[in-house]
Simulated assay, not measured.
Amino acid sequence: MKNNRIRELREKKKLTLKELAKNIGVSFTTLSKYENGVVTTGKIATWQKLADFFGVSVGHLQGLPLFDEYKNNLTDITEKFSDYNNEYVKQKKELDELKIQYKLLANKFDHNMATNEDFKQKEKILEKIKDLRKNINYSRIELAKTIQQLDESKDILSKELETIDTLIKNNKDDDK
């Protein structure tokens, strides 16, 4: 992995390459190849020793996007989706209730039984319906954006998993 984080993590701990090699039980030459990206896949056991030593995941060590970041991002997006969806459902229910109220008023108008208060009520209901439709459209747009974010995060995670699968496959091939 050419963009791995071994050097960055090693330097944070103020260790030389030789010291790190000794700490994890691999040769200086091997570790140097890993750190400099000469070893593109390497043995999982070596990556795991390094990851354990630094307290990070193998994926993070190899320079892959942080799985936890994506997991947290997905959690945030899912919560956002849930909030927008709940708001959408609430607004839709409120709109349905207003439509019923409007139909009841319309019945009064149809039978010439409407009062001045009914006219005012009708205008209020129509204004609320108009506002709710705007809000519902906004919620629909936000739901669509959130779904797109979920899809993008899913694609990124899929690519990360493919990379990990490739590493595992290459490691099995190396062991043969």
Rank of each mutant, 00 (worst) to 15 (best):
E94N: 08
K172S: 05
N170T: 06
L157K: 00
K159F: 13
R133K: 14
E117W: 04
T163L: 15
L95N: 05
A114E: 08
I147F: 08
A106M: 14
I129Q: 11
T163I: 15
E142W: 05
E162K: 15
E160L: 15
R140E: 14
E94F: 02
K130S: 07
T163C: 09
Q148E: 13
F109G: 08
T146A: 00
E117L: 12
L157P: 08
I136H: 04
S153I: 09
L157E: 07
D175V: 14
K124Q: 12
N171H: 04
E94W: 03
L167S: 03
K145P: 06
D96L: 06
A106F: 12
D131W: 08
K122I: 06
K159G: 13
E97W: 11
E162Q: 13
N171V: 02
E123V: 09
N137R: 15
K134N: 13
I147L: 14
L98T: 00
D173T: 13
E162G: 06
I147Y: 08
T166N: 14
K130H: 05
E117T: 11
I100V: 05
I156Q: 02
H111P: 03
K103Q: 00
H111S: 14
H111V: 09
E160N: 10
K154A: 11
S153G: 05
Y138V: 15
N170K: 13
E162W: 12
E94V: 02
L95P: 04
L105D: 04
A114R: 05
D165V: 07
K92H: 10
E123D: 12
K93N: 06
E142R: 08
N112K: 12
L157A: 05
S153C: 14
K99T: 03
N116L: 15
L157M: 10
Y138N: 15
F119S: 04
L104K: 04
D175K: 13
T115K: 07
K124I: 12
N171D: 07
L95E: 11
F109Q: 03
S139T: 15
D175I: 14
I136Q: 01
T163K: 15
E123H: 10
K92E: 15
E162N: 12
T146E: 01
K103E: 07
V89D: 12
K172T: 02
H111I: 06
T146K: 00
K90V: 03
E142K: 13
I136A: 04
E117V: 09
D165P: 01
S153W: 07
L95G: 03
T146S: 00
Q149P: 06
N135G: 03
I129L: 09
K99H: 01
K124Y: 02
I156T: 03
K130V: 04
E123K: 11
